[in-house]
Design a protein around this nucleic acid. Sequence first.
DNA 1: TCCAAAAATTAGCCTGCGCTAACCTTAAAT
DNA 2: ATTTAAGGTTAGCGCAGGCTAATTTTTGGA
Lengths: 232, 232
Amino acid sequence: MPHTGKPENQPRPTPTVEDYLMTMYVMERDYGEIIAARLAEMLNVAPATVAMTFRRMERDQWLTGKGRHGVHLTETGRAAASSVIRRHMLTEWLLVKVLKVPIHKTHDEAHNIEHAISPELEERMRESLGDPQVCPHGNPFPGAEEVTRGWVPLTEVPVGEKVVVRRIHEFAENSPELLTFLVEQGILPGSQTEVIETLPFNQTLTIRLGEKQVTLGYPAARFLFVERAVSA
Amino acid sequence: MPHTGKPENQPRPTPTVEDYLMTMYVMERDYGEIIAARLAEMLNVAPATVAMTFRRMERDQWLTGKGRHGVHLTETGRAAASSVIRRHMLTEWLLVKVLKVPIHKTHDEAHNIEHAISPELEERMRESLGDPQVCPHGNPFPGAEEVTRGWVPLTEVPVGEKVVVRRIHEFAENSPELLTFLVEQGILPGSQTEVIETLPFNQTLTIRLGEKQVTLGYPAARFLFVERAVSA
DNA sequence: TCCAAAAATTAGCCTGCGCTAACCTTAAAT
DNA sequence: ATTTAAGGTTAGCGCAGGCTAATTTTTGGA
């Protein structure tokens, strides 16, 4: 394990290859391309570090040397990424179901643990947890992307329409404050809500949750996917 | 996390500082001194590596520069070791109770995971698991050493005496084959048994388990602690 | 007491994986 | 068309933490 060495036990400061792979997988899946600069931000390393890591990863066959429009995962890389992501999501479910950890804390905890799950353990977890198709935040397991069909960003829902929150995108999970906010407001998978108004110019959007109203910035709202066609 | 880099996912090859601390803690607790050469064997690194690591660990206040008779853990070091060991043992219980992993497989799995447990998670685990005093192999949690009072190595039991297996020492857990053997023979905490005969010259010892008899080498038998004074 | 084995240490080397600083592209914006 | 900004890369550096080989202690017999 990456290590500070000092008598402190801070969050892992240096991303592993698996961390790179996971993030790249999601980027490729949802945005079609992998931008090193974005990766550097998300993993909290310098852009130069990403470049060096790409070299090693290409050498080790996780990545294809860029074939026009940036790098891409190899099949091996994609498989490895899927594997960590599965372990991540299963760990999250274990934390939620067995240890009653609230979902705004599962991401970080699971992130530490996921690297340490053996294939056998993964299988036992899957059984214990009833072979889930999405993580506690509603993100699909690799291979189960179809279940998200029909879920759209909250920003695309017309005013007045009733919807059900289905998914908080994994990139929102990188911001603990945002996640905490959402959970505190009761915005989580399964919540019924309705768009009250949008203010396109200042990029804000207000929704109703039961009695109360909550205003979200667009960046946050774009990470919230909802199911439409909810008959009143 | 320590990492091979290559598309393989083998057991962690390089021990962490926490791994050093755990092993040193147990050595000091049960043998009174820390021998670098033994440590090197147990951690699968070269003796020279241990020497270098000791330097860094002294610098970082985990160890006292040797005060005659080898190095010793500082209070900080001992506390850190206790902490990992607790997390290790709680993880083992989680694996055993929730995921039904057999105890000859829990050690390695837990070893990977233990480094990734936060204090909050540790607390939730302790609650979920009912505040155990020993690990699934019967080794005491740091601070609960008294529960092992009265448990003696199997090698010290006179022929003919009935005893109950209580503990498989942690150093035996480093040998998966031994542990598997013990579990297959039904030798685990709680098993009733009786010493049939000892052959001190070839260092062998035979015990009865239910109908069948099992012969153990002394090295193995020294790792088995039993409770005497079991009224027939 | 002396010697051989065991234990410990030092030196020199390697890789992984961060960092900053400086330097290229490319593409959009004046 | 030129400028600026964003993205990407290279070079040079640091530390953690392995390794072997070659010493130098220690220590426990004979």
